[in-house]
C-alpha cells in the first residue's frame, strides 16, 4: 500500500486500542467504570474522576459537524482547499477530523449536519477516522 504523505500518528501504549480499532473499522472510545463519563482522547484513567478502571467500547460513529475551517494553503498529503473539522460525537466527546464525500465549500459544509464515521487508509498500520454526510454511501 502506498504510504500517505500526511503527518501520520505514532500510537503509544495508551492509545494503541484506538488505532487498532480504526484499522478494524471501529471508532473506539473509553468510558469510566465508576462515573460513566465517556471521554476522548484516550487515557487509562477517567479525566473527570481519576478512577483507573475504564472500558473501551465501540462508538456509534454518528456525529454532527461542530466547527471547521477550509484550508487554502499547501499541506502534506492533502490537496487544498480542504476542510479541517471538529465533530461532536453522539456519545459526547469531540474530535478533529476531515469531512469526505462532500464538496469542501461553505455551501456544502453546514454546521450541525449529521455525519457518519468512515476510515481512510494511510499506511499498513494507520487508518484515519474521517466523517461523511449520512445520506451518502460509505466508500469501502
Amino acid at each position: 500500500m502506498p504510504v500517505s504523505d500526511r503527518l501520520l500518528p505514532i500510537p503509544t501504549p495508551e492509545t494503541q486500542h484506538f488505532w487498532d480499532g480504526a484499522r478494524e473499522g471501529e471508532l473506539r472510545l473509553q468510558r469510566c467504570c465508576d462515573c460513566a463519563h465517556v471521554y476522548f482522547p484516550p487515557r487509562p484513567f477517567c479525566p473527570k474522576c481519576a478512577h483507573r478502571e475504564v472500558e473501551v467500547f465501540r462508538a456509534s460513529g454518528r456525529a454532527a459537524l461542530y466547527s471547521y475551517v477550509i484550508n487554502h494553503r499547501p499541506a502534506p498529503g492533502l490537496k487544498p482547499p480542504f476542510a479541517i473539522a471538529v465533530v461532536q460525537l453522539e456519545e459526547g466527546p469531540r474530535m478533529m477530523t476531515n469531512i469526505v464525500d462532500c464538496e469542501q465549500t461553505p455551501e456544502a459544509l453546514i454546521l450541525d449536519m449529521p455525519l457518519q464515521v468512515r476510515f481512510a487508509d494511510q499506511s499498513e498500520e494507520i487508518r484515519l477516522p474521517v466523517f461523511g454526510p449520512c445520506n451518502t454511501k460509505e466508500k469501502e
Binding site: L8, P9, I10, S67, N71, I84
Partner: peptide
C-alpha cells in the same frame, strides 16, 4: 500529533481559527 496533525492543520491559521464558525 496523533489526534490533530494527521488531519492537515498547518500551524495557527488552521487551528486557532477552528472555534470561530461555531
Amino acid at each position: 500529533g496523533q489526534f490533530e496533525l494527521p488531519f492537515g492543520p498547518i500551524g495557527p491559521p488552521t487551528l486557532f481559527t477552528m472555534p470561530v464558525l461555531r
